[in-house]
Design a protein around this nucleic acid. Structure first.
Lengths: 251, 251
DNA sequence: CTTGACCTTGCCCCAAGGGCAATGTCGCAC
DNA sequence: GTGCGACATTGCCCTTGGGGCAAGGTCAAG
């Protein structure tokens, strides 16, 4: 018959841990000897080892107690657990990979080429306000989606080489302070819808890649002015009327 | 400028998490707008992403704060962290392997061959008390050290085929109720020391393999009777006097 | 007889947030 | 302008899996 300390040392846990398992109903309380000490049979070692195996695998103690009293669930639970462990190992490896990237090239706010792009915008007629907003958006994109950010950026720089598209961007910039009811917003929205369909066809970029980040970016733009918010709304209506269904959010 | 909810959604955390990071000094509190709402610059997304990378890797928030204010430690911390992740991945894989073994062959208290061995002991003259104790010891060994348990067990069954050794084991069994001062204990200890040296030479088995489990087992035996405790003490003295140094514990 | 190692219960403490309450503020629709 | 739903604010308590301490009782050894 073992004392609580012997039991704990056999299994490599603290006596406190054993007492917690008693309190949570994971391990039945053993008999007490004449002085009130807990006295464990050797089988308790086996039970405790099993509990620790599950706990080490990350099973919450409450769940372990359930499994102890419902052994018929054990098989499927172990399968589930095996799959969980596999995904957790994969997640850890992903984290390790990203961490190494952080260690290798210390993360800057923006790649140099993006900074150069932004530096060129005043010469094209964009306001400082617009450039500051665009800068913020790129910072967010590169921080949260470094994998697709470069693709987006290439698309954007290429669009600005087209004079018509550039005019549309400049018009958006200028629209910042318009009244939301201004009819020129409707006209601008129509032109944007047409250009968008022409440029991207049925599959606007980024939206397929990651709809939620596009949503978030748009909400940031919208927050900057009521006119731009209205413009966004008009563009959405226009795209839907043109046969597009914006697959945002759950879509 | 982002609200706390936008910032949190960009990075995939809850607003509560962001506020906790403020409270713990991980992320500086941003400016407030006219109604008291926090307003974040885009750079906050980058900072929050960095914090999450470290937190996902298991770095405590207090440590992250230290690193934020002492960037010169960052490099070595990242190296340390990389090593930690590697070992944690390995531990998870070990757990997974053991878990699969549990799933495959549901753990019994004892392998069948051990049960057969125990069933044969009464015919050799061992008392039920001794057999019960031995059974408990095997349960513990198989539960805590399944890798070396079979080796130990083979050694034990083989020893019992030797009539002289069997007599020694039987004598130990009988010694249970002797007075600790009984001189026959000294004699028995001498014979055990001699037989042990003869059988195992300079390297008693199991002790080299795992000294601590042997210690724990012996303490369990000792707890069963003062005479056996005394016998253990005499044997240790005898082995040391015979040129052996028990490398227990830290050894 | 003391000393050190063990056991008992009970209590408070930690990280990293989750959840609720009570209140204030937005933007939109009627 | 009124109401509604979504969002923000602070403050407080709750959770998990124990760690640590206090104040006492027990045990074997010198």
């Amino acid at each position: 018959m073992l004392t609580i300390g012997q039991l704990a040392r056999y299994v490599g846990v603290s006596t406190k841990t054993v007492r917690v398992y008693h309190a949570k109903g994971l391990l039945p309380e053993p008999e007490r000897d004449s002085s009130g000490y807990r006295r464990y049979p050797a089988q308790a070692v086996v039970e405790l080892v099993k509990i620790r195996m599950l706990a080490d695998a990350g099973v919450p103690l409450a769940r372990i107690r359930e499994l102890a009293s419902a052994p018929e669930q054990l098989d499927s639970a172990l399968q589930q657990l095996d799959a969980d462990l596999t995904t957790r190992i994969k997640l850890l490896r992903d984290t390790q990979r990203r961490l190494r990237k952080l260690a290798a090239g210390d993360i800057r706010y923006l790649p140099e080429e993006v900074e150069r792009h932004l530096d060129g915008l005043p010469g094209l007629g964009f306001t400082q306000r617009w450039i500051a907003m665009e800068r913020d958006l790129w910072i967010i994109v590169y921080a949260t989606h470094p994998d697709i950010a470069d693709t987006w950026f290439q698309d954007q720089t290429q669009a600005l080489t087209n004079p018509e598209l550039r005019q549309l961007y400049l018009a958006c910039d200028q629209a910042h302070d318009l009244d939301p009811a201004d009819p020129s917003l409707t006209e601008l929205a129509d032109r944007i819808v047409a250009a968008s369909i022409h440029r991207y066809g049925a599959e606007p970029p980024g939206q397929a890649a990651d709809a939620t980040i596009a949503e978030l970016l748009q909400s940031t733009v919208n927050a900057s002015s009521p006119a731009l918010r209205q413009l966004d709304s008009l563009i959405r209506n226009g795209l839907e009327a043109g046969g597009f269904t914006l697959r945002t959010g759950a879509g």
